[in-house]
Design a protein around this nucleic acid. Sequence first.
DNA 1: AATCGCGCCTGACGGC
DNA 2: TGCCGTCAGGCGCGAT
Length: 271
Amino acid sequence: MPELPEVETARRGIEPHLLKHAVTAVVVRNRNLRWPVSRSLIESLPGQRIDSVTRRGKYLLLHSPAGTAILHLGMSGSLRVLPADTLAEKHDHLDIVLDGGRALRLRDPRRFGTLLWTTGNPAQHKLLRSLGPEPLEGHFDGDYLFAKARRRKVAIKNFIMNSHIVVGVGNIYASEALFLARIHPQRAAGKVSRERYQALAKAIRKVLNAAIKAGGTTLRDFSRTDGEPGYFRQHLRVYDREGKTCERCGGSIRSRVTGQRSTYYCPKCQT
DNA sequence: AATCGCGCCTGACGGC
DNA sequence: TGCCGTCAGGCGCGAT
């Protein structure tokens, strides 16, 4: 599933194909994504030139002079750039057709994805304005997390998965980062020391950067791939490894459901 | 203000 | 083999 590293990989993959190209059409085969694709997007985007492709959390932003398309891949979304006349398959819900004969195609079997249109400053869009900091940029560190966690009783795993605290930490990387920082996922966010938050912030950055690096190898032929599922899998230390051996202490990895989501951890060395 | 649970949706998988 | 129930999961939203 697309987590921050995969969204960033997608961004880097599509950017060279979109930059300074004009949209000639938007072909919508199924408008029923998480929110229906709006008439204003379908009417406004054609004719526009894409000036930049940026990312905010797991949202991709296609900036044009008239406005910004906000794209989210949800759980199962993927993007490809391909010849515009390529036969669409079952879950290929829409194409953003570009001059030069290619199209950006969104495939999303579960349709948890989103494509929205906004004029004005996209950072002030309802979905973006209250997001927490980017974990790989300036204002994110252990002191920030520690300050935000004061008096919070929520489990730390849920805390770091809250996009209003920090963006881009999904279910997989939350488990992985907590393992690296040796923090038990159920521990109350307010009961974690400043020092441990510093280790956690570092761990989050480490795991996200490593995953982006792993995703990088699929960039070369991005237009022909969906992004090789599970490439980062071999690096996972706890996620989806229930009953397997902890590489650090030899204990047994355990799984449990926290906040409706499966969580993996080593009960022996995460406290 | 913080937290919790719901619902959107399909494919994979296990049980019978 | 086929049918059916269950689970997975990002994340906004409404309720508490």
